[in-house]
Amino acid sequence: MPDGVIRAVNDVSFHVERGEVVAIVGESGSGKSVTALAILRLVSEPLGRIIAGAVRLDGQDLLRLDHEAMRRVRGHRIGMVFQEPMTSLNPVLSIGRQLTEAMQTHLGLSPGAAHARAVELLQLVGIAEPERRLKQYPHHLSGGMRQRAMIAMALSCKPELIIADEPTTALDVTIQAQILHLMQDLCRRLDVALIIITHNLGVVARYADRVNVMYAGRIVERGSASDLYRAPSHPYTIGLLNSVPRLDRPRDIPMEPIPGSPPDPLALPSGCAFRPRCKLAMSHCAEAAPPLRSVATAHESACFELHRLQAMVPA
């Protein structure tokens, strides 16, 4: 690994309410996953460090907790669902063991009580024959089923927040919709806040209430999912929308991928990091990073050239 300090995430700030689904969108390497791990303080020191900021859960700053107190937050008040259901379960422990251990650790449940709740949880996430599944090992389960089991684990200790990092990227398209629907539905019903990290705008459109678009470690645009679709207000967001094939647009309008690739985090461009790939870039974009500014109610964008944006918006 080359030496140097990488500011993987910079000035990122957002909030989630209970029962609400917030999406963080961006390309690979834009800092989405690091943000998620940083919330749980799982960015391993001394390689990674949170230099400044606060992570408030119900008003309590998680960055000020000691290691032991933080451990009790993980899996208990914040559940996490990871990207790779195929490798996220321990191959040598039974599903039951992996599902009950957090409940025994955090809620102090007896093995019997934890088992009973595990059966309920598997039913909740739509796994048939829960008793039999609990005895099985991960290799007996399909990818979709494993991700359901992961969701059951994330829910097991009745968390206030669930962070799902690309929860459906590794799954078949038909399963993706089921899993996302399940997560959205459960979080609404159980009044849990949900952060979905994804690069898939389709996911955002259907399941998120609010969206944060990240580029090179910063939030460049945020607003409600419908605002973002109807009136995207950052060249990057527009670029993202233009690079997705859409069935609702005439076939003769070609897709327009964003030219170039995300910047090397060791050598970020000065000013606005999106500048080298931006059609609207002006000389003053190199001078300072644009701050988030309101473009409409609850809709913000970080771009100096907003007034020229109209030219980019697809018909």
Binding site: R71, G75, L93, M153
Partner: peptide, 26 residues
């Protein structure tokens, strides 16, 4: 380095449970 150890940590298990129960048998 594996994903399931990161998951075990994210579950808030104690270090000894992560090391002895999740990592060591593997």
């Amino acid at each position: 380095k594996t994903d399931y150890i990161r998951v075990a940590r994210a579950k808030g298990l104690t270090t000894s449970a992560v090391i002895l129960r999740h990592a060591f048998p593997n």
